[in-house]
Design a protein around this nucleic acid. Structure first.
Length: 766
DNA sequence: GTTCTAGAAC
DNA sequence: GTTCTAGAAC
């Protein structure tokens, strides 16, 4: 290894090409890794996948080698996307290295159970290795795995043990510029003693009929991306032999039979459909009658699913229980879409890692003090989420009354967030029928049922309120927005087609909230806890939304701009009258400093076209102008970067600008400015309200329109750091945090050139 | 868009 | 008492 080190260090500045040999079992995410790097990349990469090398069909190792050599000759970097778990399988690819080519290894050494659940899920599409067999194969492969060493000829080896390591590596490679080199050596932690766990999926003791149906029918909605389905590739051809030899070895092993059956549940890990997992409320420790409870659950689920599209609810219990079967049969009787509601057996805090079931939000059957401990689900969730949940909960509410729910965003530091992808926990308190517990209703089931119904309403509305923030599900936009996936949790909230019905639902809700007889439970769930984001704020904002919608729908009416909102318009029309403030004038655009800059550098690029006030009426005919604005913005960014290479920029539009005349914000992401004073300022640049220019252009190219997120709610969202996503109670605290936060930017921002930064800084920021 | 300021939150 | 937010006026 020392030899390698010397070679690379002497040639450090030459901008060598790289061959990255991925090492990982099927299901470890190799292809996804490549895709993520390539989508962020600043220099050309070629992914060589034995599985698809012959016009989409599988090929030979020799073909891979020659394609790799060719790509290197063209000056491209290369991914070798095959399992490469054994030294011998890697040897020939390592030989691609030389004077001008470095060979790196990226080891996706993720938990075996995760690889297995993913790969088992994927074989359904491939039809090669079926269900349990795939599990055996992966198991066996992992047992044979030999982790790469520098001595094999690698100059750099990166070990990834979990998703966050993987993201780190994606950032590192994705951020490489053509002349950049990475330091040689070992990176990340190597865990050699990891033993493969057999029978990992006994957790799924029973496959719900509903779940199975879901897997079979759900291809369109619960789509597994193509490259994922290809994960078991011919580079694992060795493994097919293993399959046959191993297959019998495991037959008759009941645990693994269970595994096989249960694993198939993993395939419903539906990326893209926001999912709420919830326990049955009140039926365990609070001793609520299960028969009655199951009626309420089914009724509330049905009601919610009718109102909100494209979401999924999963009732979870640790064991196959009476309540699960009651609910299942009642849901079946009511013909509730099994794709959208199902039951599941397992630990609600391990649904993804143990079962491949992605749940963005989980509900907690909380106690009234909202404290950890006790037993059951509450103890499990608090312990799995770590102290971060307790702290975040405290920020939101001190206690909870029966029938109410409180939505708590999970800090990204929580293991539940990092490992399971859970973004929010919703605490719910149900009615209590247990004399040993507080607030016992003494068998008053009239009241009990009402409160339990309220509890579920609160829970589901809380879930919906999260969606409305994260996916604009309620916006009723009638077009498919760009379905790029994004940061860890946003992945789960992939944007989807929303329909008019949902849009109407949103406005129905507004009317409802404006009415005098508000349902306190619902109110509570949406307002978070104690009115911080108060009901009135919500109704006001919703009202605003309806109003602006009317303008759009009615078409004829135009937004009326106040006098103060005309300033940019005047400058755009007569830049010569504003020579002092204008930095650049052309026929199409005017550039000026924002009068109240919200960061060290904050420019506006104005469109000069009369009547082009905002993105609301943008269309394909404006494409060229938008591209010009973007290009001019980038030009200025480059000049700023040459003065200060530590800056990072974003270029984009406000979905609902306050000032007339389309203006592109070019802003450095330090947000170090005294003019940044309030929530609206922050959120207008750091939520979906801000539309990156590059995305707007892409959407117009694809759909002729841009999706706008002009929901006022976005502007009153809690304050979160744009880097580490931590939440802060007020602007001063946020500002003091961001002045120090050096966390890498979230993956969403790192993709698609949304960030513009100096080439020399690429690694640091990523 | 900002400024001003009452009053909520701490 | 001080800090901070949010609504109204411009």
């Amino acid at each position: 290894m020392e030899v390698d080190y010397e070679i690379t260090s002497t040639e450090e500045k030459t901008g060598k090409n790289i061959v990255v040999i991925l090492v990982g079992a099927p299901g470890s995410g190799k292809s996804t890794f490549c895709e993520n790097v390539m989508s962020a990349a600043r220099c050309p990469w070629v992914r060589i996948c034995q599985d698809t090398i012959t016009n989409g069909k599988s090929g030979t190792k020799a073909q891979c080698l020659s394609s790799a050599a060719e790509a290197l000759k063209d000056g491209k970097n290369v991914f070798i996307d095959r399992c490469n778990l054994e030294k011998e399988q890697r040897a020939e690819f390592v030989k691609l290295g030389g004077l001008h080519v470095d060979v790196h290894a990226v080891v996706l050494d993720l938990p075996a159970k995760l690889c297995i659940s993913r790969s088992v899920a994927r074989t359904g599409h491939e039809g090669k290795l079926q269900g349990g067999k795939a599990a055996m194969v992966v198991n066996r492969m992992l047992q044979k795995k030999e982790l790469p060493k520098l001595g094999e000829g690698f100059s750099r080896i990166t070990y990834c043990q979990n998703e966050s390591d993987v993201q780190g590596a994606v950032n590192t490679y994705g951020g490489l510029g053509p002349l950049d080199t990475l330091p040689p050596g070992y990176f990340g932690e190597e865990k050699r003693d990891a033993k493969v766990q057999l029978g990992i999926m006994k957790f799924f003791k029973k496959v719900d009929a509903i779940d199975t149906a879901m897997r079979d029918k759900n291809c369109s909605q619960v789509s597994v991306s193509e490259q994922e389905t290809k994960e078991i590739d011919p580079s694992c051809k060795e493994t097919e032999k293993i399959t046959s030899s191993v297959g019998n070895e495991y037959e008759g092993n009941t645990e693994d039979q269970v595994l096989l059956e249960g694993s198939s549940v993993g395939s419903l890990s539906s990326k893209g459909v926001p999912t709420l997992a919830f326990p049955s409320i009140s039926t365990s420790d609070f001793q609520f009658n299960k028969e009655k409870a199951s009626d309420i659950i089914v009724e509330k689920v049905e009601e919610f699913l009718k109102k909100v599209g494209n979401v999924r609810l999963v009732l979870v219990d640790l064991h196959e229980s009476n309540i699960l079967s009651l609910v299942r049969s009642k849901a079946e009787q009511k013909n509730i879409d099994s794709k959208r509601f199902s039951t599941s057996v397992g630990d609600i805090t391990r649904l993804y890692t143990r079962g491949g079931l992605r749940c963005n939000v989980i509900a907690n059957a909380a106690n009234w003090r909202l404290k950890p401990g006790g037993g059951g689900v509450n103890a499990t969730i608090f312990s799995a989420a770590g102290p971060a949940l307790e702290a975040a909960t405290k920020e939101r509410a001190g206690s909870l009354s029966p029938g109410k729910a409180v939505v708590v965003p999970l800090p990204s530091t929580s293991p539940l967030f990092k490992e399971e992808g859970v973004t929010h926990v919703i605490h719910v308190l149900g009615p209590n029928m247990n004399p040993q517990r507080p607030n016992c209703l003494k068998n008053d089931y009239d009241k009990g049922c009402r409160i339990l119904g309220e509890a579920y309403s609160s829970l589901f509305e809380g879930f919906a309120s999260i969606l409305s923030i994260q996916t604009k599900l309620w916006k009723g936009s009638e077009e498919v927005s760009g379905s790029r996936s994004s940061e860890l949790h946003e992945n789960l909230f992939e944007r989807n087609i929303t329909n008019k019905r949902e849009g109407r639902y949103a406005s129905d809700r507004i009317k409802k909230y404006k009415g005098p007889q508000e349902e306190s439970g619902i109110q509570h769930a949406i307002s978070g806890s104690n009115g911080k984001e108060s009901l009135s704020a919500m109704t006001d904002s919703m009202e605003g939304k309806v109003q602006s919608k009317n303008e759009k729908v009615d078409g004829g009416k135009r937004k009326v701009w106040s006098a103060w909102a005309q300033a940019l318009y005047h400058i755009a029309m007569h830049p010569e009258k504003h020579k002092n403030e204008v930095l650049e004038i052309s026929d199409d655009i005017v550039v000026l400093n924002d009068h109240y800059p919200k960061a060290q550098k904050h420019l506006l690029v104005l469109a000069r076209m009369d009547g082009f006030d905002s993105l609301v009426n943008v269309g394909a005919e404006h494409l060229q102008l938008l591209k010009t604005m973007q290009a001019v913005g980038l030009k200025w960014v480059q000049s700023f970067l040459s003065d200060d290479a530590s800056l990072v920029f974003r270029l984009g539009y406000h979905s609902a600008p306050s000032m007339r005349q389309l203006h592109l914000h070019v802003i450095s992401l330090d947000f170090n400015s005294n003019h940044l004073k309030n929530k609206k300022h922050w959120n207008s640049f750091n939520t979906a309200f801000f539309r990156d220019s590059i995305d707007v252009i892409e959407e117009i190219e694809k759909y002729g329109k841009a999706t706008l997120h002009d929901d006022e709610k976005l502007l009153s969202m809690e304050l979160r750091c744009h880097r580490c996503r931590s939440a802060h109670p007020n602007i001063p605290r946020l500002k003091s945090h961001i002045s120090n936060c050096q966390a890498p930017f979230p993956a969403t921002l790192l993709q698609n050139d949304r960030l513009v930064l100096a080439p020399s800084q690429v690694h640091n920021k990523a």
